[in-house]
Amino acid sequence: MAIHASELNTAAVEVDGISKRFGEAGRPNRLMPWRKLKKPKLALEQVSLHVETGRITGILGANGSGKSTLIRILATLLTPDQGTASVFGYDVVSQPDDVRRHINRVSVEASFFKEMSPWENMLYAARLYGSGGEGTRDRVEAMLERLGLPLDTLDKPMKQLSRGQQQKVAIARSFLTSPSLLLMDEPTTGLDPRSKREVQELVRSIRRDRAATVLLCTHDLQEAEVLCDRVVVIDQGRVLAEGTPAELIRAHAGKTDGSLEDAFMQLTGKRLEEDEEEKEE
């Protein structure tokens, strides 16, 4: 759904002091008191974030650092323990319906009805977002063609597609609903180099054409470097640094011709050399 002019001036995403723990602490199970208390897992701690409309913002962090948790909170799929988060001014907890109208999400795993065909899955998605009538098929075909998916796969069961092909359908699904905020959780993981480029080009084009805002979690630091206007590095649920890729490189790479990868390694405290030394021992 297109954003209103009034929404153009508000931040796309405003996260303020969000914390999230999994596994409730200190609450013994009243029905089964013999059960051991699990230690709560801190996934996010006091995370604040401000994303301007029309920007591509990268979220970088090691496995388990809380990236997907943050994305899920913004997608109204998880409720934060503390803090507030809003999307185009709508609170994710108290106004989930308004938030949902403006967002879509791609996750690492494709998440489809596996016996149904890509087309049937896309049609279902379109219906949930207020379309699905005439012209939907054409739009789906155009989108998939652009991503380089052979059109003869469109009516085969999803399970017959390769992982990368399924991922392309997932990406197409998220673009189909024209979200103003696109939450992409490792969208290009498992794609071949050419397809990766296609996806990156598509992401650029929706920002250009529709002023869409993109939040992109990725482990591909080169992708982040070429695609993102800003980058946020998180580690163990905390924001370590944020800025443009160039700023982060300048401040943290430790050398003049450094890359985002150098900066990331520095920031997360694991220098490549150290890792390698350990291996040699």
Binding site: T76, L77, D97, R100, R105, F112, Y129, G130
Partner: peptide, 14 residues
Amino acid sequence: WEGTIEYTFMAPIK
């Protein structure tokens, strides 16, 4: 089972 639950729950519908 299908893994679609988050997508259905995230949709802008009642």
